[in-house]
Simulated scan of single mutants.
Amino acid sequence: MVLELYLDLLSQPCRAIYIFAKKNGIPFQLRTVELLKGQHLSDAFAQVNPLKKVPAMKDGDFTLTESPWVLAAKFSKAVPSWLHGAREWRQQWGRTSSGRPMRSS
């Protein structure tokens, strides 16, 4: 099963994820979502991300829709030992890009 990235490379957060994946040799299938054409507002894309925003990442049945967490998940694929530092990372960065506090486990 291949990692699917839903991106519009005109978007800076999307470009960051794309560059990160390429630089770290993480295999993925690019699913282009053209924001200027309103493709992110389609019912088809709403099945991937009900918030209708990019970037989004789909790995089998697992989907992430906020760029910092997409990067974090991809980094864990590039460096599996990173998961041991995930808790400290969450404590340091502690908020989602929307500004809402994250739930700590």
Rank of each mutant, 00 (worst) to 15 (best):
M1V: 09
M1D: 09
M1T: 12
L3H: 04
L3E: 07
L3Q: 07
L3A: 05
L3R: 10
E4N: 07
E4A: 00
Y6G: 05
Y6Q: 15
Y6H: 13
L7G: 10
D8S: 10
L9Q: 08
L9F: 01
L9G: 13
L10W: 01
S11V: 05
R15L: 14
A16M: 15
A16F: 00
I17D: 10
I17R: 08
Y18M: 10
F20K: 11
A21C: 14
A21T: 04
K22D: 08
K22S: 04
K22L: 09
K23R: 14
N24P: 06
N24E: 00
G25D: 06
I26S: 02
I26L: 03
P27V: 00
P27W: 00
F28R: 10
F28T: 12
Q29Y: 01
Q29K: 15
L30Q: 11
R31Y: 01
R31C: 10
R31P: 07
T32A: 11
T32K: 14
T32D: 13
T32R: 15
V33E: 12
G38W: 02
Q39G: 03
H40P: 15
H40Q: 13
L41I: 04
S42D: 01
S42E: 02
S42I: 02
D43C: 00
A44N: 12
A44K: 15
V48F: 05
V48D: 02
P50V: 07
P50L: 02
K52Q: 15
K52R: 15
K52A: 00
K53L: 05
K53W: 01
K53A: 05
P55R: 05
A56S: 06
M57C: 14
M57P: 01
M57W: 03
M57S: 06
D59Q: 04
D59C: 02
D61C: 05
F62M: 11
F62T: 13
F62W: 06
F62E: 10
L64N: 11
T65Q: 05
E66V: 02
S67E: 07
L71V: 14
A72S: 10
A73M: 02
F75L: 14
F75G: 04
F75Q: 12
F75W: 11
S76H: 03
S76N: 06
P80Y: 00
S81N: 15
W82P: 01
L83H: 14
H84M: 03
H84C: 04
G85T: 07
G85A: 12
A86S: 13
R87S: 12
R87Y: 10
E88I: 07
E88K: 13
E88C: 05
R90P: 00
R90V: 11
R90G: 01
Q91L: 15
Q92N: 13
Q92P: 04
Q92Y: 04
Q92K: 14
W93P: 02
G94A: 14
G94C: 06
G94H: 09
G94T: 08
T96L: 07
S97L: 07
S97A: 13
S98P: 02
S98L: 11
S98C: 08
S98N: 14
G99V: 10
G99N: 11
G99L: 05
R100E: 13
P101K: 09
P101L: 02
P101R: 06
M102T: 13
S105M: 07
